[in-house]
Amino acid sequence: MTWTVPNILTVIRLFAAPGVAIMFLFFARPWADWIALVLFVLAAVTDWIDGYLAREWNQESRFGAMLDPIADKAMVVIALCVITGFQGMTPWILLPATVILFREVFVSGLREFLGAQAGTLKVTKLAKWKTTAQMIAIAVLFATGVFQHEVLDRTVGMDDATIGAILMGEAPDEVGLNFLVAAEAATWWGGVILLWIASLLTAVTGWDYFSKAMPYLRGPKT
C-alpha cells in the first residue's frame, strides 16, 4: 500500500472518529463539545479533499476505495452515539439515528454477503448526498451542545427569576444569554430537521441497494 496524501487523509479521518467520543472523557463540557465539533468538521472536510486529490493527482487506489466508506461510517456512527447520549435519548434524535445506524449495518452486511458481486452496490450520487446531509446535521447538533453548556456556565448562581427577566428584556443581558439561547434553539431544530432529512435519504439509498442485490439473493445457497 502506497502512502499517498489522499490515503493519509483517509487514515487520519478514520482515527478522528473515535477521537470525537474520547474528547468527552478527557475534557469538561463545553470544551469537549468545542473540540469534538472542530475535530468532526475538520475530519468531514478531509472526506471531500482526499477524494478530490486522488482524482486530480491520479492517486486513486484499492486501499483508499476500501477505507474511505469505512472512515465515513465510523465518523457517523460514533458521533450519533455521542449525540444521542448527551441529548438525553430524545425521540427527535433517537428515531432518525436508529434509521441511519440500521441502514449502515444492513448495507455493510449485504456487501459482505455478496462478496464478488458487491460491485453491484456502487456508491450513487444520492448516497453521497446522504453522507453530506448526515455530516452537516451532526456538526450542527454538536454546536447545540456547545451553546447548551455555554448557557449553563454563564447562568451559574442565577435563579430562574433572574434568567427569566434577562430573556424577557427586563434585566440587562451582560453575559450574552439571549444570543446563546437563540443559537441553542436554532442549532437544535436545524440539526434535527437535517438529521431527519439525512435519515430519509439513508432509507431511500438503503432500499435502492437492497433492490439491486435482490437478483443475487434469490434461490438456494451454493
Rank of each mutant, 00 (worst) to 15 (best):
M1E: 11
T4D: 06
T4V: 05
T4G: 07
V5C: 07
T10L: 08
R13E: 01
L14Q: 00
A17L: 07
V20M: 05
V20H: 00
V20S: 00
L42M: 13
A44Y: 01
V45C: 13
I49C: 03
I49N: 04
Y52A: 15
A54Q: 05
A54D: 00
S61N: 12
D68E: 12
K73E: 04
M75A: 14
V76S: 05
I78D: 01
V82R: 00
I83F: 01
Q87D: 00
Q87A: 05
G88E: 05
T90Q: 11
W92H: 07
I93L: 10
P96D: 05
P96I: 13
A97R: 07
E104L: 09
V107T: 13
G109W: 10
F113G: 07
Q117H: 14
L126K: 10
K128V: 12
K130E: 15
T132Q: 10
A139T: 11
V140S: 04
A143E: 11
T144W: 08
H149V: 02
E150S: 02
G157A: 13
I166F: 13
I166Q: 09
I166M: 15
L167F: 06
G169Q: 14
E170K: 15
V175T: 14
G176C: 09
A183R: 12
A186G: 09
A186P: 06
W188A: 13
G190N: 07
G191A: 08
V192I: 15
L194V: 12
W196H: 12
W196L: 07
W207K: 08
W207S: 06
F210P: 00
S211W: 03
L217A: 05
R218L: 14
G219C: 08
